[in-house]
Amino acid sequence: MQQPILQVSGLTMDFGGIRALNNLDLDVNEGEIVALIGPNGAGKTTFFNCVTGIYAPTKGEVDLYHKEKNRVVSLLGMKPNQVTEQGLARTFQNIRLFSQMTVLENVMIGRHCRTKAFILGALLRDKKTMQEEDEIIQTSHEILTKIGLQRYENEIAENLPYGAQRRLEIARALATEPVLLLLDEPAAGMNPQETIELVNLIQEIASEGQSILLIEHDMKLVMSLSDRIFVMDYGKKIAQGTPEEIRNNPAVIKAYLGEEVDA
């Protein structure tokens, strides 16, 4: 059994009296696409927020495994920017772009945690700083080309069509060189054509070895993309397994009562 790159155990999050996450276990292996699903208000976004340091969980363990360094780091108690530095990048359910910056600049911000130049470098523009700056521009450009947004490069981010904005969030997260990419409802609000393009994009990214954990309501998308699925309801994990197993799981069908689970 290989070492999972993300290992979450016993994660619990209380908001006052509300237990939004209840003793949750979850793991993602290298190169996998794992989906996290559940009805509205199940606690999926809260899970992302706890793992990425935006909320401090009440209890639990979050460990990230660096393969090349062969080292496990606990992400608990880290600030969001430190978590990203460690290799966990995410997108947001409600798009959060830097709306007045250009598309390219949005991606360049993603390179921040992998570069160093500071006040002195900015002022002197020495060789090292300029090389780094070139690297930032070049890498961001390449990522945008891969994501298929290069023709928007110099547009202001908020002028982009909706689907492109969602893709830009993915591009920006990829620029941080994540060990694991977290996507919070990447297809939300997309039309069928955009959704198909998104599925292709995610498959392409995954085929390059990127591990992905995604939250999604679109069952068709989830069933076709995921290697494994975790299902939660009221903050608890109610099922886990392959898409086949989940489709026929009575607990899942019950949780989604009234919602269709077809694929």
């Binding site: 920017n81 007045q100 130049a117 700056e133």
Partner: peptide, 26 residues
């Protein structure tokens, strides 16, 4: 020079969206 640097971009990103900014490692 500052506003046209890595630091300057980080400032503008911070102005635009603090949470996203932190999530980008700033």
């Amino acid at each position: 020079r500052l506003q046209d640097s890595r630091l300057g971009r980080a400032w503008i990103a911070l102005r635009e969206d603090e949470i996203a900014c932190q999530a980008m490692g700033i």
